[in-house]
Structure formats: C-alpha cells, structure tokens
Design a protein around this nucleic acid. Structure first.
Lengths: 229, 229
DNA sequence: GTCGAACACGTACGTTGTACGTAAGTCAAG
DNA sequence: CTTGACTTACGTACAACGTACGTGTTCGAC
C-alpha cells in the first residue's frame, strides 16, 4: 500500500557524507542535502529523524568501516596483534572522514558495527587472560586511547588545521617563550619530524606493553606465551 | 578616552558557565547570556569574538582548573606519581562540567593553562628518561587516554545519560543478543559494579606500567629506580 | 474505479548568530 | 566649561537554520 520511495537511506548516507567530506560539516543542512538529492528539504524527514538522526546516520556510515577485513582465522592470532589490528582499523576509519570526527566524539554511539567492533576487541583482550573488571579496564584503556588520539589530531595542541602545513607545528612552538615551555618545544620538533601513523603505533606499543606486564592482576596469562617483543 | 566597561571577561565567563552547568549547552545563546547579565545581546560582542570566542572562553574556564594544586616540591616526586597526579587533575577538571566536554573535544585548545599543564606533564614524563620522539609518544599516550576516557564517559557504549540510572548500563546490555555479544554483556556488569574513578585509575595503571616497561626504547631509566609497584 | 495509506514537498514560523547604525558616555585638549 | 574624538552599549534588521503543518500525489488492495 505504500508509495515507492524516491531514495534509500544508503543514498542519503552517501550524499550527506560526500557533502561533508567536500565542504565541511557546516555545509550540511537539510536544504543543502535536499538540493544535492534534487528534492525538497522536508523530504529528508521521511528517511531520517530530524537533524539528530541525520548526524547519527553519518556517524554510522563512518564507523561501518571500523571493522578490519576478516581474515581466515583471526581468532588464532596473538591477542596483541589482534588488538592492534582492531585499534588501527578503528582509527583509520575515523581518520578517513575528519569532518565527521566532531560528531563521533559527541554523539552517543550504539550502532551494530560499533558493538561488533567492541565485542571483537573484547574477544582479543580476553585472550590475554582477563575477565570481568580487568577486561573492562583493558577495554577502556584501548578505546580511550584510540578516540583520544583521534581527538588530539583534530584539535590537540600539536594538531594542524586542514589548510595548514606541517611547518605550522614548529612555527607555533617558536612563538612560545622558550624558557617556560622547553619540553613542548622539544616535542613539537619531534612531532614535525614524525607522522600520526608512527605516533599512533608507538602509543599502542606503550599500551600493549602495559597490558602485557599486568595480565590480569593475579591470573597468569593463559594463551600462547610469546614473551615481550 | 574609553568609556568604562560594564562587565569583565571574568563575569562573562562565570555567567556563561553557570548557564551551561544549569541548563545545558543549548541554553547558552547570545540573547540568553545577555539576559543573564541584564544587558543587550550585542554587548557580548564587545568582550568576545562572536559565538566562537564565547565557546573558547568556556573551554578556557574549565581547563583553568586542570593544573593540580602546587605542592612544595612536586619536582622531586616520582615521575609515575606526578604523571598520575596531572592526568587525574585534568580529568577531574573536565568532568566537573560535563556539558562543556563537547566543546573541549572539538575546539582547538592553546590557552596558557593547557600549555602549562602539558609542559608539567612533559617534565614528569621526561624524568622517566625519555627525550625527543619517545617523549612525544608518551605524551600522546597519556593525553590521548585522558581525553578519550572523558569522551567515553560522555558518549561511549557504556555511558549513562545525565537523566539515567546506573541500571541503564545493564538494562541496555540485557537488550543485546547474548550469543553475539557475550563479552560486552560481561563488562557491562563489571561497569555497573564499578565507578569511573576506579576505571580511570586502573587504565592509568596499565598505561604507566607500559611506560615503565619501555623507558625510552634504548636509554635506561635514570631516575630513582623504584621498581614496578 | 474507489479508497486509504504512505510519500513528496511548498509554505511558514520561531530561533539563531550577527552586520549595521545610533545614542550615550568618558577623557584630553582648548 | 566646551569641544572633539573615540570607545562602549544596544536596538533594529536580516539571512539562514530546523521543522510543524497542510496539501497534493502516487501507489496497492478490493
């Protein structure tokens, strides 16, 4: 009995995402999205629950790529490798659409893809011998680091705006009083010579080393006992 | 030759902050803030560079409390203790005004208080024997975890809305298909029985353990060699 | 053909940030 | 005390936003 729909939610999603990727988050309005689809503004409301719902759709679209490609037997891999794989896939997916990051950071997320990703991460962490509260702590530490790192790249003290150059980091550092902020200036130099990929990898190294050194606050590690790298 | 100002930036700051704390971020508009101050909307523009500047003022106000109280000789303390002290002070300050967190997460921060906090954290981390790139990685790991944890409490999968109860966590978990998300359900139970303070502390434990186990990727630790707790 | 439900979408309203203009206030100079 | 230059206060007005509401259209079912 229904009239056929002119669009699908998929179409809305991709149209909205490409609009944001091309011209920033501010360029996404009900009217602009409708114009991009060649229709009237109020039509959007037939597919999405207002502006809130539209932004939720965007977040889902970005996070849908957070799960790494399934390999043959991912469950057999070392939990450190699997943890790193999941964390990096999540980070990469978020980073692919920088203009959506503010939404990802502020909106409550409970879409299937994110739940799937969380469960996969927990499966990996559980194989380090953790259960219950210890598993929770490990989960919080890893996910906290991933989102926090993405946030830092977007708006942290050493971040660079989309229209800026890498040189902006050292330029800003040079503007600081050298006698008050010697270390900030030092790591600004290191940041300019580094890349986000290296820093993310190194940060994960620290985190995983911490997880290795305290397998479960009492329970010995049970999985294949390859020692610290 | 100027006319005397009716207000100070401090007054704006506190008025805006109390408005947001009381009625949420959406309640802060140019008109509502002006009404709270007993003046016209356009007067605000004499103190602040538009809406953007007003939000920056809010962020500064919250982050101004991020530096822990100065003790007599904080520089003598163990770097682990000092790192934890700074991370917790930052987290506490952010958590004190939950409605401002979305702004803190999305706005680029470069105010003096934050720089001071960053430099203090770097001073602490440097005493673990790190320099240059390794110091940067450690800095990124700690700050990333702190902001990421704050974000997770605001909008993460296990977070609770301001009007919700602790029971909401387990309620949501119970709504999940138990055979697909066993671990998520498990840590939801642990989260309901835990507190953010405990989880933050435990996460920092993991991170600091990781920092201990890899002092500097080559350089031995130089400070007072109290071993792992 | 007729009916009813789902959809498309134009119109209109309240709210927002803010450009602009004007009036009022203050100090330095005469 | 008067004048002039300049800063501040703030009312008005406008563009842009999200969206409630109403109307017209299009389809499947009978």
């Amino acid at each position: 009995m229904p009239a056929p729909r002119k669009f699908s939610r998929e179409q809305l999603r991709t149209a909205a995402l490409s609009l944001v990727d091309a011209h920033g988050l501010a360029a996404l309005t009900m009217r602009s999205l409708a114009a991009a689809l060649g229709t009237g503004a109020m039509t959007i409301y037939n597919y999405v629950d207002g502006r809130e719902g539209l932004e939720g759709l965007l977040v889902e679209a970005v996070l849908a790529d957070a799960l790494p490609a399934v390999t043959e037997h991912p469950e057999d891999a070392d939990w450190r490798i699997e943890t790193r794989r999941l964390a990096e896939a999540n980070w990469r997916a978020v980073r692919a659409h920088p203009d959506v990051i503010p939404l990802i950071l502020t909106r409550r997320i409970a879409d299937p893809a994110s739940l799937e990703h969380g469960e996969a991460l927990l499966r990996a962490l559980a194989r380090s011998g953790r259960r219950g509260a210890d598993l929770l702590y490990a989960f919080r530490a890893v996910t906290g680091f991933v989102t926090g790192f993405a946030q830092a790249e977007l708006a942290g003290p050493l971040s660079i705006a989309p229209d800026e150059d890498v040189r902006a980091i050292t330029d800003r550092a040079r503007a600081l009083p050298a006698e008050r902020f010697p270390y900030l200036i030092e790591i600004a130099g290191a940041a300019a010579a580094s890349t986000p990929e290296i820093e993310f990898h190194a940060g994960l190294d620290v985190l995983i080393a911490g997880l290795e050194s305290r397998p479960s606050a009492g329970n010995p590690e049970r999985s294949a006992g390859q020692d610290r790298v």
